[in-house]
């Protein structure tokens, strides 16, 4: 079954989305991540979507759900690398991804997660 790999680095989970995701794949990623947060006792989730050239309302909702779910499980989610064109489109679409933390790239995302872990 097609899956997006989740990397574990200490107490952080790293996901790099590189394929044009169909809906089932996005749903599977949400399920896998939720399970992994608990199993790996992760404190942070970093989702790098710099390779995605499109985020529609479905994928947007999936990202929002990951953030909300991880919060309940006491982990912080940071989404990084949203491309300018994708950001403009999301805003036009009416999706502000409220409640999702964002960073410019993986490095800055890791910084943000480290800072969040210290709170």
């Amino acid at each position: 079954m097609e899956r997006i790999p989740i990397l574990r680095m200490g107490d952080t989970l790293l996901v790099t989305v590189q394929v044009d995701m169909h809906d089932q794949l996005a749903v599977r990623l949400l399920d896998d991540l939720t399970e992994m947060i608990t199993k790996a006792r992760a404190r942070g989730v970093l989702i790098d979507i710099s390779a995605l050239d499109m985020v529609d309302s479905f994928i947007g909702r999936m990202i929002g759900d990951v953030a909300a779910t991880s919060r309940i499980l006491d982990a912080t989610t940071v989404v990084c690398g949203i491309q300018p064109a994708v950001a403009i489109t999301l805003v036009e679409l009416g999706m502000s991804l409220a409640g999702v933390r964002t960073a410019l790239d993986v490095e800055k995302g890791m910084e943000l997660l480290r800072a969040a872990a210290q709170d």
């Binding site: 050239d53 529609d56 064109a85 489109t89 679409l93």
Partner: peptide
Amino acid sequence: RQRAREKAQAAGFTLTEVTKIVTAASE
């Protein structure tokens, strides 16, 4: 989505416009 991207690029749209068209096609 992929077809929409091809056609939008063929029509000479800018990257942001292509992205908007592809996203609408997906919806």
